[in-house]
Amino acid sequence: MKSTLTIARRELAGYFATPLAYVFIIVYLFLTGIFTFYVGNFFARGEADLVPFFTFHPWLYLFLIPAIAMRLWAEERKAGTIELLLTLPVPLWAAILGKFLAAWAFTAIALVLTAPMWITVNYLGAPDNGVILAGYIGSFLMAGAYLAVGSCVSAMTRNQVVAFVLTVVVLFLFTASGAPMVLDAFSGWAPQAIVDTVASFSFLTHFDGLVTGVIEVKDIVFFASLIVAALAANAIVIDMKKAS
């Protein structure tokens, strides 16, 4: 556990050693602002909540999270430091978890920096802060699931651009699997159970509940098990590369 934290600390410092962290945070704050106030009609709705803010998170994360996750393993491979990391007396899971936690902590920092949004809505009206907290928790969990998938994809290649594009594609399938255009492709021929299963894999389905303040165990379990599964797949990918 101690080595996990040591690796996580190093990784997190690594984000801030390059302009990537600052560029990411600025772009993130800028885009959440645009989506909330212009696309989401924050003011015109006349309601004191952050629904327009959270609604766009799955689509924003679709492109921003792969940008954080792409470097996790691809860069280690490219720089050769993966050889250093994997020959340290650290279990593989600890290295994977450490790197993942660093990336997740980084998204947490970005999320915390959106606090002015929360202050604004409290200044303008009297929102249900419990619902807003649920939204933040949901957004954070969803970011973790996106990151875990991105970490796994990043372990497959030494090219960060390839990692980014592949992650966007995979995440798009996950995000959009609840959207009508995907479900229609199945509903014509597949039994309803399969259509429901496909829909249940959607980030949107599970995130929407949290945004409206309904913290359901099944949604949390969905995101948590997705993180665990993706990180386990991450370990398998690294092990397979070792043996190939």
Binding site: A13, E83, L84, T87
Partner: peptide
């Protein structure tokens, strides 16, 4: 029990 210097001596360049 092992000290290993990999080929090319990789190290974290940002540190």
């Amino acid at each position: 029990a092992l000290g290993y210097l990999p080929e090319g001596a990789p190290a974290y360049g940002d540190m």
